[in-house]
Amino acid sequence: MSMDDISDVELVREFKSGNVHAFDAIVRRFQDRIFRLACVWLYDQQQAADVAQEVFVRGYKGLRSFRFRSAPFTWLYRTTKNVCNEFNRRRQSEPLVDEPGDTSSVPEQQVADYDGARQVRRLVADLPPRQREVVMLRIFEDLSVKETAAAMACREGTVKAMLYKATRNLKLNMERAGLDDE
């Protein structure tokens, strides 16, 4: 059985037991999700890549003492959030909705990625932080209510309530944006 076929928990278990290929598999499995989240929470993709790198470097040290009380992605998600907060603290003066700089030299795929991330960022920018998190995890990352609750360290009922409010706010924001466009 290859590393790509086993579950997240088993993969981390392999890493903890000293399998040298397990960490490569962890990076390959989670890099897109970590990078996407960082793209939305940060200002440019270069920083998002830096954040993802930092998250995995911390994961290399931290996952050795992982106790499996939560899912491995939950651990990585919290680390991503912390690292993004650290990066954002350095640029506190800048607004969350940030226009891209000169993208003429970057590949087409990266420009499309950046555009997608920018749209999501615009959508959730007006939401309160906790609602923003719920939308990102539950709607965009497609986590279950239970997983979202674990990642946000709250109850499932809280997640449902926040998701309801967030969806209502999103609807209002989108209607307002539609009116503004007209």
């Binding site: 960490f23 490569d24 990076v27 390959r28 890099q31 897109d32 970590i34 990078f35 996407r36 793209c39 939305v40 993709q45 890549a49 993802a52 790198q53 995995f56 470097v57 290399y60 795929q109 990266q110 499309a112 990625d113 555009d115 997608g116 991330a117 749209q119 999501v120 959508l123 709607i139 965009f140």
Partner: peptide, 22 residues
């Protein structure tokens, strides 16, 4: 928007960068 978001992929060099830094 969700489809666009999920199309975002990490740069191909990210894994190499990570593995080089550990």
């Amino acid at each position: 928007m969700r489809r666009k978001y999920r199309n975002i992929t990490a740069p191909p060099a990210l894994a190499t960068r990570v593995l080089a830094s550990v």
